[in-house]
C-alpha cells in the first residue's frame, strides 16, 4: 500500500520542480525504479492511475525505467544479477553479498512547458 504515498511523493516533487522552472504543464515524469526498491510495479501503476493530480499534471504520462538488481559477493567479488536478497553467489555459493544496484527509487527527470 505504500505505493500510493510514494506516488503522491513523486507528484509533489515533480510539481515543485515544475513550479521552480516556471512551467505550467508537466508532460512526462521519468522514474528509475530498482527491482529491489520495495516497490510493487503493478501497485505503483494502479496508484499512478488513481492518484489525485493537480491541474498542471492532469495529462502527465510516466516513463518507468526498471533497474535490474545486481549483487556483489564479499567473498569472491563476483558480480551477479539477482531478483532477491538471498540468492547465493553463482561462483562460490556464499550468501555474503551486498546489493550494489537495484534499490533505486528516483525521479530522473520531468518534461515541462
Amino acid at each position: 500500500m505504500h505505493e500510493l504515498s510514494v506516488t503522491l511523493s513523486i507528484l509533489d516533487v515533480a510539481e515543485e520542480s515544475a513550479l521552480n522552472n516556471n512551467a505550467k504543464v508537466v508532460h512526462e515524469i521519468e522514474l528509475d525504479i530498482g527491482e529491489l526498491s520495495g516497490i510493487d510495479f503493478d501497485s505503483l501503476e494502479f496508484a499512478i492511475s488513481n492518484a489525485p493530480k493537480s491541474e498542471m499534471m492532469k495529462d502527465v504520462s510516466f516513463v518507468i525505467n526498471r533497474i535490474d538488481a545486481i549483487a556483489k559477493c564479499n567473498d569472491c567479488s563476483c558480480e551477479f544479477e539477482t531478483s532477491d536478497y538471498y540468492t547465493p553467489c553463482p561462483q562460490c555459493n556464499s550468501f555474503n553479498s551486498d546489493i550494489i544496484q537495484g534499490k533505486e527509487l528516483k525521479i530522473k527527470s520531468i518534461k515541462i512547458d
Binding site: 528516483k106 525521479i107 527527470s109 518534461k111 515541462i112 512547458d113
Partner: peptide, 16 residues
Amino acid sequence: HQPKIVQIEKDVLSQN
C-alpha cells in the same frame, strides 16, 4: 515547440 526536460535525479523518499 519542444517541451523542456528538467533533470531531477532525486530520491522519491528524499523528503522523509
